[in-house]
């Protein structure tokens, strides 16, 4: 192992987005090195949004010739087996090394939604799969089989996925695929709807149009711009558009959802407040290590 290799150790517990970002932040400088290992101890579990955000990050690193190692200390009985079932390794760049060994990517057919488990869906660059929003929606509905009111999630969730996936096609201009995933967590009574891509990112495409307009918006921070995107709807294409993300956020309000956007060097989190979203300042940060693209997670509160 080269001396300059950075090792990022996660905890032997559930890794939330906040935990994940804290780990990255603590290794900000080292993440820029030529080699990095992500170490997952026995008992480590990744939330679904973290799983696909990690997948995007390490595929980006591999694409930039960074030597990446994933070290699963528990092997197949632990996190590695979970990630295999969800299709993580099928979407993992071949240049990335896996310890103890890269698993066979063949999975048992239709390996159970009954335990709340979901698989990662690939958003292929260059070929739009028109069935994706419906497919993701039905995955969520299937996982809510114990809820009598599950039908109320169907229409809004379809629109959320349609808008978020369309956003991937609109902002991504890279050879790296995007991902979508959904998972329910019965113990905490939440569902996570996540979409991750390695494209240019919302702010990268938005900021130049704001400066062209001479708008004062160009001087706002990432967090302030995202607040406008979510509550007012602004877009790289000007005033008549930009209601896709706003509209999807309005749908998410029906489920009292928290929203999270990881963009470039920023993490912007929102909490519902009446008919609007307010920035969750405690969870929002700028100057984080770079993750290209747009990584979105809506966390539904299934109690509401």
């Amino acid at each position: 192992m080269p001396e300059s290799r950075t090792e990022i150790h996660f905890s032997a517990t559930w890794v939330s987005s906040h935990h994940f970002e804290t780990c990255l932040k603590n290794h900000s400088e080292q993440l820029g090195r030529d080699s990095v290992s992500f170490v997952f101890p026995v008992g480590c579990k990744l939330m679904i949004d973290v799983s696909i955000k990690l997948l995007s990050l390490i595929n980006q690193k591999a694409n930039s010739s960074v030597d990446v190692i994933l070290d699963f200390k528990e092997g197949m009985p632990g996190l590695m087996g979970y990630l295999k079932r969800m299709g993580f390794f099928e979407n993992l760049d071949e240049r990335i090394s896996v310890l103890p060994s890269r698993p066979d990517t063949r999975r048992p057919w239709n390996y159970g939604w009954e335990d709340g488990f979901m698989e990662i869906t690939t958003i292929k660059r260059g070929s739009r799969d028109s069935n994706l929003p419906e497919q993701m929606t039905q995955t969520l509905i299937s996982s809510l089989s114990n809820k009598n009111d599950r039908e109320r999630y169907e229409g809004p969730t379809w629109t959320i996925f349609a808008e978020l996936i369309d956003n991937v096609y609109s902002h991504s201009r890279t050879p790296i695929d995007g991902f979508a995933a959904v998972q329910t967590y019965p113990a905490s009574n939440i569902a996570k709807v996540a979409v991750s891509d390695s494209g240019l990112g919302i702010l990268t495409t938005l900021r130049p149009s704001l400066s062209t307009d001479g708008s004062k918006l160009q001087y706002l921070s990432d967090i302030e711009i995202m607040k406008r995107v979510i509550n007012e709807g602004i877009s790289q294409y000007g005033g008549i558009r930009g209601n896709g993300l706003k509209g999807s956020a309005q749908k998410a309000l029906k489920f009292n959802a928290d929203l999270e956007f990881r963009l470039g060097n920023s993490l912007v989190c929102f909490k519902p407040q009446g008919k609007r979203y307010e920035v969750d300042k405690k969870k929002s940060f700028e100057n984080l290590p770079l993750i290209s693209g747009t990584h979105i997670c809506y966390t539904y509160n299934l109690n509401k």
Binding site: P133, E134, G155, W158, T159, A162, E163, D166, I240, R241, N243, G244, G247, S248
Partner: peptide, 9 residues
């Protein structure tokens, strides 16, 4: 059956 905001727009 379904139509999102971007399409409607």
């Amino acid at each position: 059956k379904r139509m999102d905001i971007s399409f409607a727009s």
